[in-house]
Write a protein that binds this DNA or RNA. Structure first.
Lengths: 320, 320
DNA sequence: GTGAAAGCGCTAACAA
DNA sequence: TTGTTAGCGCTTTCAC
């Protein structure tokens, strides 16, 4: 068996409660005693058992992080940042993947609830009602989803989309396509709204569409037929697929058509042409979500992070 | 406070131990009683507190998964698979990122030790000695690292490298470069050994080198100067950077030079030309590592997973 | 400043 | 088959 608080107490000639205090309420114990206890603990290799501690304090010092798909390149930077931020505050994080399944998501929250002080729900697939019900069991911070009364970290996609469209316009593009994602998608709707608000653009809406490379590939023909010279794609994966599809049809990016993605995932940075994209502050979102969760009192807090346009190689002057 | 076993006991008119048994030793309780208890529990929304359970049983039903860098595209498929596999066995998994820092790695293992039934150490940066010492505290499964006496999941890189080199040879390439990674790296050494074992190839060893896109970019000039027509790169990132660097120098892949990577990460699949690569079975490794950890008795188990060559577009006939 | 004792939620002998 | 009791490792009143 591992070394417990009792072993330390015995070896340092004090009561267990003193050892406990030496760790969790240092100011309540005589510096000398404290140092002795700490030294003994160190020597024995004692580490407080966090689970046992949680039982009395009610605070587990664990967080849950639930995402739809760990392998989707959008998430890893968020997971990494959240985990790092949690660690600076002495928290561990459970990471779970729902495989896009709302049922799994719900079950995960329920089983995790008792073991964590809060959970980060990233781009949840669950209904608002279901989430509100779950929020009774455990504190939440939502990422990429807004539900009244629940703290959330959002990213300002509309701003990024506007920037993207204006960038296209500034390069002389007039006829521009907006390729949306899955039909129910929040972002798709937003993109359209924003696009409608940029004057002087002749807009073509394409989609709904799979939010994947295949989706982009599939929409290439429609883009080619539409006569546009610029495209704002639902996300980077779609943009990448689109560029590939266009190339297969003999249409070159950015010479013939400019393409902008959304997310700023790694593959877009490695692609040639390097993808111009609306960068989502995923790492910042991960950090911020952890902060929100840990800073009690941030009840209904709503943080919206700025997106930025990163101009790389997939956009250029409109052909004439 | 959440609903506890005591609430369920009271509401169903039995003793807590009966409730406990209804969940963790169903066969020991009368089916009728059991159903009643379960019904009441369901109704009250009772969920056993796993941390409390762990305190008595000694089994937490949690796993730790430690990787060097979550954002490195090599890891997410492994994390996803490990997590999924763990879930099928009713385990949760802590995911932690060491940022390539051995110190952090060690500290993480120590703090996690008490909260988990075992930890998956993926591509650890720690010394053998340190790992052996830590293995006294908590069961390990190593991924991508072999230490005597510790269970490990390895991937057969030599086989993949041989396949890659033979593929190049089959395409008529004679003068071929092997671009290695960081100097200490295990894989680098292996690659050289394997390369030496493939007859009829005129080999050039380049490196050591950063295992990143920049590393590939940096080595492009040397590759160009070396007069090779084929390259086996340390990994996909290096291969991608190399292709980019070659392109900048007016050298086309695969027309002038064929390039093969290792890993099969997503960016390679999205790249143009699509990267020919030695696919690492990362998902299978994640699953297998979890199985090894959970199947007690697998003490010194050593599993080597096959790698395969995936031929895509970055390799072609040698120019003549 | 330190010790004693109770208890967090649960399981595991041991009785009955 | 079920209840009783003790205790997992720790914190937290409450005394002293």
């Amino acid at each position: 068996m591992a070394v417990t608080i009792r072993d330390v107490a015995r070896a340092s000639g004090v009561h267990v409660s003193t050892v406990s205090r030496a760790f969790s309420a240092p100011h309540l114990v005589n510096p000398e005693t404290r140092n002795r206890v700490l030294a003994v603990a160190e020597e024995l290799g004692y580490r407080p058992n966090r689970a046992a501690r949680a039982l009395t304090t009610g605070r587990t010092h664990n967080l849950g992080l639930i995402v739809a798909d760990i392998a989707n390149p959008f998430f890893p930077p968020l997971i990494k940042a959240a985990q790092a931020q949690a660690r600076t505050r002495d928290y561990h994080v459970f990471v779970a993947d729902t495989d896009e399944d709302p049922q799994v998501e719900e079950e995960l929250v329920k089983t995790l609830a008792k073991q964590v002080d809060g959970v980060l729900l990233c781009s949840p697939r669950l209904s608002n009602r279901a989430i509100e019900r779950l929020a009774l069991d455990v504190p939440f911070v939502l990422v990429n989803r807004r539900i009244k009364g629940l703290p959330a970290v959002l990213m300002d996609v509309p701003r990024g989309a506007r920037l993207a469209l204006e960038h296209l316009k500034g390069l002389g593009h007039r006829r521009v396509a907006v390729v949306s994602g899955p039909s129910g998608s929040w972002t798709s709707t937003e993109m359209r709204t924003v696009a409608a608000g940029v004057p002087g653009l002749d807009l073509v809406y394409l989609g709904p569409n799979q939010p994947t490379e295949e989706g982009g590939l599939a929409v290439a023909a429609a883009v080619a037929d539409s006569g546009v010279t610029g495209v704002l794609a639902y996300n980077d994966l779609v943009a990448l697929g689109l560029i590939e599809g266009l190339a297969a049809a003999g249409i070159s990016v950015p010479a013939d058509v400019s393409v902008i993605g959304v997310d700023d995932i790694l593959p877009g940075r490695l692609n040639r042409p390097k993808l111009t994209t609306v960068a989502m502050p995923t790492a910042a979102a991960g950090r911020m979500a952890v902060d929100l969760l840990l800073q009690s009192g941030g009840e209904g807090a709503l943080v919206t992070l700025d997106t930025t346009l990163i101009v790389r190689e997939s956009t250029g002057e409109a052909p004439r």
